[in-house]
Design a protein around this nucleic acid. Structure first.
Length: 349
DNA sequence: CAAACGTGGAC
DNA sequence: TGTCCAAGTTT
């Protein structure tokens, strides 16, 4: 048992110290200026496995385009995916859109002030439900993410997941459960970092077990074997348009548009293209794949059928949901395409 | 429950 | 260059 968390008085002191630290050190983030549960939900979803700095521009654009549940519900899926392009874990965007529909039809267009109801929404798991409950509704639920696990692991010497959950449940403060949870995460992200914690700046160092023992080791994450993958891409260009293909609705990059590969050229387009040298070679990683992507340019017309193929004007590429793999390839080819493709991918508007 | 799911920052 | 891994969820 983590003796440090046993005493209610001690817990109260730790909470107070953490909140005081947070009040003086909190970063000024856009979602912290809002009290709208929708804004909290969107930010927490974007922040899943994604760092704050990466999220910021996406959050601004998303909230600008879809400022409410109703706006999101009414938006075309393509528009939502397009804004999300480059952020990764694209199922999150599908889940948001889907959940917005559920909220509109069954919850009056609002996030429910109810942990179990939140959990039922697609894309909301234990962490996100706890974050929304505490931050948006001031309810004393824990929100245990990687930061919190690390902080408690060091602070109390915890390794067991169940004990950690119990501790998190006992530690949450009321009042200010949302600030408390964010303080814990902020501490983990900025002070109690994985490799080199700066204990001099930590308001909890006085009580910290790892600090006392000098051992900050954490249980290793699962080692994931990466695979080298060759993934050639073909840019078929004609009249300032390129040919895109829509990916299947499940699996990798589900529902996004892609550049064809030599093996999946549309019917009627021979593979003659790929005999020539690539104009560029892209390197990109997707989860456990280390992708090497030679990019081939083929200038020719082609007749295509079906909803899965589409000629897209270069100027319209920015409104297409594309993985960074493809925006990299298109950027590498832009001078040959005679277009200023600042409009490709994230970053504009 | 292990595996899949994106991307870019940090070292 | 390589490796780790981040405000997780789903199947």
């Amino acid at each position: 048992m983590p003796e440090n968390a046993d005493s209610p008085k001690l817990r109260a002191r730790m909470r107070a110290a953490l909140l005081r630290w947070y009040d003086r050190n909190r970063r000024d983030l856009p979602w912290r200026r809002s009290r709208d549960p929708y804004a909290i939900w969107v930010s927490e979803t974007m922040l899943q496995q994604t760092q704050v700095a990466t999220v910021l521009p996406y959050y601004r654009r998303f909230m600008g385009a879809f400022p409410s549940v109703e706006a999101l519900d009414r938006a075309p899926l393509d528009a939502v995916q397009s804004i999300w392009s480059g952020l990764g874990y694209y199922r999150r965007a599908m889940n948001l859109k889907h959940a917005a529909g559920v909220l509109a039809s069954r919850h009056g267009g609002r996030l429910p002030d109810d942990y179990d109801a939140l959990l039922k929404l697609p894309g909301i798991g234990r962490y996100t439900a706890g974050a929304i409950m505490s931050i948006a509704f001031q309810r004393p639920y824990p929100a245990v993410d990687g930061n919190v696990r690390r902080v408690y692991a060091r602070l109390f010497g915890l390794t067991d997941a169940k004990e950690l959950d119990e501790t998190a449940g006992r530690m949450v403060s009321r009042p200010r459960p949302g600030d408390f949870n964010q303080a814990l995460m902020e501490l983990g992200a900025t002070v109690c970092s994985p490799a080199a914690p700066t204990c001099e700046r930590c308001p909890l160092s006085h009580w910290c077990r790892a600090r006392a023992s000098g051992s900050f080791e954490l249980p290793r994450g699962r080692h994931v074997e990466t695979k080298a993958v060759e993934w050639p891409l073909v840019i078929i260009e004609s009249n300032s348009r390129v040919l895109l293909h829509r990916r299947p609705d499940d699996g990798l990059l589900a529902g996004l548009w892609e550049l064809p590969t030599p093996a999946t050229l549309p019917p009627g387009v021979a593979r003659e293209s790929v005999a020539v040298a690539p104009i560029a070679v892209i390197r990109h990683a997707i989860t456990d794949k280390r992708i090497t992507a030679p990019v081939y340019l083929l200038r020719r017309e082609a007749r295509v059928r079906g909803k899965a193929w589409r000629w897209v004007a270069l100027a319209a590429l920015s409104s297409y949901p594309l993985s960074s793999l493809y925006t990299k390839a298109l950027r590498a080819a832009q001078h040959r395409l005679g277009a200023r493709l600042s409009s490709i991918g994230a970053g504009d508007t």
